[in-house]
Design a protein around this nucleic acid. Sequence first.
DNA 1: AACCTAATCCCAA
DNA 2: TTGGGATTAGGTT
Length: 119
Amino acid sequence: MKFPCLAKANVIFSVGDTRTRRRRLRRRKVKGDAKKRRLSDEQVRFLEMSFRDERKLASGRKAHIAAELRLDRKQVAVWFQNRRARHKTSSWRRPTSSSSWNTKPSSSRNATSRTRCYN
DNA sequence: AACCTAATCCCAA
DNA sequence: TTGGGATTAGGTT
């Protein structure tokens, strides 16, 4: 398929917090084209606007955004997912390279802060 | 089935 | 090394 360097790069290792053992695959390289990283300013602006309005994509809003910005729905979904994830955990230092998994704040993981605004 | 989270990957800056 | 788009595995709606 599209993962040339993938064939034998199938690694299995456990992720700290008990939970489950995830099988992670080394990802593709995406051939010579597609060096379209980084969304443009306009796009980010629009996305942020929508994010403030409603943290979770729903209904046709995603499709509208995607159409407006000329992006894939997938891309919009990914943006929202990353946004949510990276904002939530911006309090405690994120792992940065080695050790990663064992180093959560251990305290103040409590709470009631499961507040998701279901609209 | 589409969507989400959590973790990770990976590459440009 | 970091930022951030993309991918993965597994869970939820």
